[in-house]
Design a protein around this nucleic acid. Structure first.
Lengths: 189, 189
DNA sequence: TACGTTGACGACAGTCACTGACATCGTCCT
DNA sequence: AGGACGATGTCAGTGACTGTCGTCAACGTA
């Protein structure tokens, strides 16, 4: 047995989520989080770059899976189709049984501007990574960026509706709907 | 004559821009800025909510003009067309003779992640305002958000290319090009 | 002219996020 | 046994941001 309780990182994450949810993000200090986890402030910052990052630990996984999935599409697939197919697959495999958790997380983020800033930059870096994956498929530059950006916009609106709903529809369905909406909008304008 | 030099806000803005540009954002303290402007740190925070906000003073103007311009389009205009037309008009009238300034500003922002976060949330709030303006025109909700989001994506890529170029093309031209690219991408995928 | 009010700023103390340097002590390896 | 290692604690520091109060010129008003 080690000198300390195991799973420090998970304990910090758990403590932070709980405190953010009931006190709100800006009324919980890092010292609070560390104390609840039975650790010190300094240790918190060894696991998380800053107070916000606790809520975005899963974004790396989404990032990797999305890039991989875009790269794996048949060579003949059109750029936006490759992105949307990747979103459907990854979204379902990653979020299928976690809607309540996602809802709570989003509730915390929606209540705080700094957290929204962090979320936006994560999404922007996701878009950049998808654009790079498209370029590797031979898609030239303005198109690659725009297809990636459009894909992320689709994902955002789809995710929002998936979270807002009570009925048991899947995320992928919302993604397909949002794609259709976007196509209608760009065709008409 | 007042008890102090006039134009405190402008002096702080000037000092901040100069320091951000040559030392970089994170190696200049608010005390530095205030001292160069002949003021105190406390006064800086009376004019700017935080250290980043100094670089985003003009965003309110862009916000208002864009919303007004979207609202002023003929009722028959399609959503995305209204947004893009507004972007062309406002972009030209607001940035026409300020490309060098915009370039320097962007250089500072691109060098610092916190500033990119702030820029992204400004753009997101711009998109939200445009979506609201579209809703006032009777555009239903998924379409309004997607058209606004698409418009902002168009603006971002257009602005990026406008800044990167040396030749004297106008911003509106880049906006039209980006729109065409997006249409091609969404039609194909 | 005297006097009260206001507005812009300074002074000061305090909180909190975040960092660097170093100490501590189980665990593991030889 | 003994030394290297890894996870954590301790401590001191910087800097962003806030609340509170004091100051003083300008301005209006009696």
């Amino acid at each position: 047995m080690g000198r300390w309780e195991p799973n420090s990182r998970a304990r910090l994450e758990q403590a932070a989520h709980e405190l953010y949810l009931d006190r709100g993000f800006d009324r919980t200090t890092v010292a609070d989080i560390a104390a609840r986890a039975g650790l010190t402030e300094r240790t918190f910052f060894r696991y998380f770059a800053d107070k916000r990052e606790v809520l975005f630990g899963g974004s790396g996984l989404l990032h990797d899976l999305l890039v991989e999935s875009v790269g794996a599409a048949p060579a003949s697939t059109a750029p936006l189709a490759a992105v949307v197919t990747a979103l459907e697959a990854v979204g379902d495999s990653l979020f299928a049984d976690r809607r309540d958790g996602a809802r709570r997380r989003q509730q915390v983020i929606d209540a705080n501007i700094e957290l929204q800033e962090r979320e936006l930059i994560k999404l922007a870096s996701l878009a950049a990574a998808v654009a790079a994956a498209l370029r590797r498929r031979g898609v030239p530059d303005p198109a690659a960026v725009l297809a990636a950006e459009a894909g992320i916009a689709i994902f955002r609106t789809a995710f929002g509706r998936w979270i807002a709903e009570d009925s048991r529809t899947d995320l992928a369905g919302h993604v397909r709907e949002s794609l259709a909406e976007l196509k209608a909008v760009t065709a008409g304008g």
